Amino acid sequence: MTEIRPATQADLPAIAELVARLQADPAHHIGFLGVTVEEVTEEITGLPGWPEGAAVAIGSSGALRGVLITDINRELRRGWLYGPFVDVPSGHPAAPQSWDTNADALYREVRARPALQGIDDLDLYGHIAHRQLAEFAVRHGFSTKRETRILTLAGADLRSLIAQDIDCVEPLPADDPRIREEVAVLLERAFPNRTRSTEQLLSGEEHTVVILKQANGSLAGFAAGYTQLDEYLVDYVAVEPEMRCVGVGGKVVRGLLRELDARNGARRQAAAVVAHENDASARMFTKLGFGVELELVSYRRQP
């Protein structure tokens, strides 16, 4: 008999161990939650409101058998699901049914939590090989939106890229309302489906933003990202239409990585998220030395 209950802070060590173990298998992998115990712990504890929006499945032995975690942005009235993660015996004939039963129960528990009241716009990312997650998404009214590539650059290649001198790229100024407005307009035009509001992104609390100006002083492009335990994440890159195909994207990415390195110290790798159909962005990152590490599918449930 499995007990489904709200998560508590005391569950965190067992959750991190379970998630890290399952993340190593593409058939269980969920996007954007790290792959090591340390990364998973950092990601979970960094979520606003943890653990109010999370649920766990506890087996009859008292061991953790599953977990579903949420990240809620009330300003956007939108949420992101990390999971369901369900630990089922490999090769057991009842494994698919056990996964489905526990995953559905975890989802019902999370949806009933006060943290999710009024949040009907939900996102979920899973590995393309996670077939049970795809079936879970269909059962609960999620639509398949698109495939996403995770590109990474590590080691000496990353250090070499950071060492390149990009003097023309600068941090987003706090005292230039005109350029900040241009960044906001480009951000909203290029990323209508973003995970943070414009105000949240430009506040500097989570994201670092760098810009490149044209000769006349107007915006050419920008990049935004942040530093995690083991990597730099390039989250947003946008270039004004008249400045495309002249290397602006690569310059702001290099400038962003250099700024993140200067502010937060060295990391093992850099990662970027690119929509599968965005070949231009993929080519830009490939020219910088990035390679495809993961392919994810996004699902979304909207009102």
Results as ranks from 00 to 15, higher is better:
223 A>P: 00
11 D>V: 10
8 T>V: 04
28 H>K: 03
80 W>M: 15
178 R>L: 15
189 R>H: 12
264 N>W: 14
21 R>Y: 00
185 V>Q: 14
26 P>W: 09
295 E>Y: 07
254 R>H: 04
81 L>G: 04
109 E>H: 13
185 V>R: 15
232 Y>W: 08
75 E>W: 03
9 Q>T: 08
66 G>K: 09
161 L>V: 04
302 Q>F: 01
133 L>S: 08
181 E>Q: 15
195 T>N: 12
33 L>G: 11
93 P>G: 15
42 E>A: 14
100 D>Y: 13
119 I>S: 06
85 F>R: 04
161 L>C: 05
23 Q>K: 00
26 P>E: 09
60 S>T: 12
155 G>P: 08
175 D>T: 14
134 A>T: 11
179 I>G: 06
222 F>T: 07
5 R>Y: 01
128 I>L: 14
289 G>A: 14
226 Y>D: 14
210 V>E: 07
117 Q>W: 09
130 H>T: 01
26 P>Q: 10
278 N>I: 05
43 E>I: 13
180 R>F: 04
136 F>I: 09
173 P>E: 07
19 V>L: 01
162 I>G: 00
231 E>T: 07
260 L>D: 03
66 G>F: 09
223 A>V: 04
300 R>K: 14
153 L>W: 07
123 D>R: 12
194 R>W: 05
208 T>H: 15
7 A>P: 08
268 R>A: 12
176 D>T: 02
71 D>W: 15
118 G>L: 01
213 K>P: 00
40 V>L: 07
181 E>A: 15
138 V>M: 10
153 L>A: 12
98 S>K: 11
296 L>T: 00
191 F>G: 10
242 E>V: 14
188 E>A: 14
35 V>Y: 02
198 T>P: 10
53 G>F: 10
100 D>N: 13
256 L>P: 02
176 D>R: 03
214 Q>E: 05
205 E>V: 15
158 L>T: 02
302 Q>V: 03
39 E>M: 13
48 P>T: 12
47 L>A: 08
277 E>R: 12
110 V>D: 03
178 R>Q: 14
212 L>F: 04
292 V>G: 00
15 I>S: 09
94 A>E: 11
194 R>P: 01
68 L>E: 07
30 I>E: 08
2 T>P: 15
158 L>V: 00
224 A>V: 06
149 R>D: 11
301 R>T: 07
290 F>V: 07
12 L>A: 10
6 P>D: 00
233 L>P: 04
261 D>N: 11
8 T>S: 05
45 T>D: 08
5 R>L: 02
201 L>K: 08
127 H>C: 13
244 R>L: 11
73 N>H: 12
278 N>D: 10
13 P>F: 00
265 G>V: 05
282 A>Y: 03
239 V>I: 03
186 L>Q: 09
257 L>P: 01
268 R>T: 12
289 G>K: 13
232 Y>D: 03
200 Q>C: 10
161 L>M: 11
109 E>L: 15
285 F>L: 13
225 G>C: 13
36 T>D: 12
231 E>Y: 10
254 R>E: 02
32 F>A: 13
276 H>M: 15
211 I>F: 02
54 A>R: 15
118 G>F: 01
221 G>Y: 00
197 S>T: 11
269 Q>T: 08
